[in-house]
């Protein structure tokens, strides 16, 4: 399979994602420039973390109108696989591919630290190598990661099993103390109804090699590869 990593002006996790795809899970991978109008036959598009367009206006608000996003939106609406990490998640929300919006962290601070995530749905192309309820240790690094969705939307997320990750403690308990940014219902990652589009605030690409302090992020990448090439 082939990954495509989109590069916006201000992306800064693009190389991390590229390296994990290429060297850790050993797949084909290509950078896609924000001005490109082709996805170069990639099977899974990664919208990486960073500060696209300086986070001007709102996080992800400008990136959503870039030429490559027109193609990504078409691709995603056609059932193509897209994973948005951190700023990539914010872009997916702004583009309407995933429901909800990001508010400023309740602490108003940029938070950069390891957190624990509970896998709330392992039956997605992004988590099929995880166990249900597994606790992953993956870092976050954001100022606007306080996920918000109106009540009706939250109900739909719950009904359709669209909550993929929640912030939790070491034992997997979903508690207010384990919530780093004020996200509604401790939500750290969600997917669309069809489970083909993932958005998550934590950075699996920063935790996919033991030298970086954790390799739990690899589960996400290995799940994607496994989805395309089962059993490999």
């Amino acid at each position: 399979m082939k990954f495509g990593v989109v590069v916006f002006p201000g992306s800064n996790c693009d190389y991390d994602a590229y390296m994990v795809a290429k060297s850790v899970v050993r797949q084909e991978v290509e950078f896609l420039w924000h001005q490109d109008t082709s996805l170069h036959n990639c099977d899974c598009i990664i919208l990486p973390g960073g500060f696209s367009y300086g986070d001007y206006l709102r996080t992800g608000a400008i990136a959503r109108f870039s030429p490559i996003m027109k193609k990504v939106i078409e691709f995603a609406k056609d059932g193509g696989m897209v994973a948005g990490i951190c700023n990539g998640f914010q872009i997916l929300l702004e583009s309407g591919l995933l429901p909800g919006a990001m508010l400023r962290n309740t602490s108003l601070r940029f938070i950069c630290k390891f957190v624990q995530l509970k896998v709330e749905n392992k039956d997605t192309p992004f988590t099929n190598m995880c166990n249900q309820g597994q606790v992953l240790r993956i870092p976050i690094a954001h100022t606007d990661g306080n996920y918000f969705i109106p009540e009706e939307g939250l109900k739909q997320l719950l009904e359709n099993d669209q909550i993929v990750f929640r912030y939790c403690d070491e034992r997997g308990n979903i508690t207010p103390a384990a919530n780093p940014n004020g996200s509604l219902d401790n939500i750290a990652g969600i997917c669309n109804r069809a489970k083909t589009i993932l958005g998550m605030m934590p950075h699996p690409e920063r935790a996919s090699e033991i030298i970086l302090g954790s390799e739990d992020g690899k589960y996400v990448f290995r799940s994607i590869v496994n989805f395309f090439n089962p059993g490999r």
């Binding site: 508010l103 962290n105 309740t106 602490s107 108003l108 306080n146 918000f148």
Partner: peptide, 8 residues
């Protein structure tokens, strides 16, 4: 909608 900046 929670307004952390306003409340701070």
């Amino acid at each position: 909608v929670l307004d952390p900046q306003g409340s701070t």
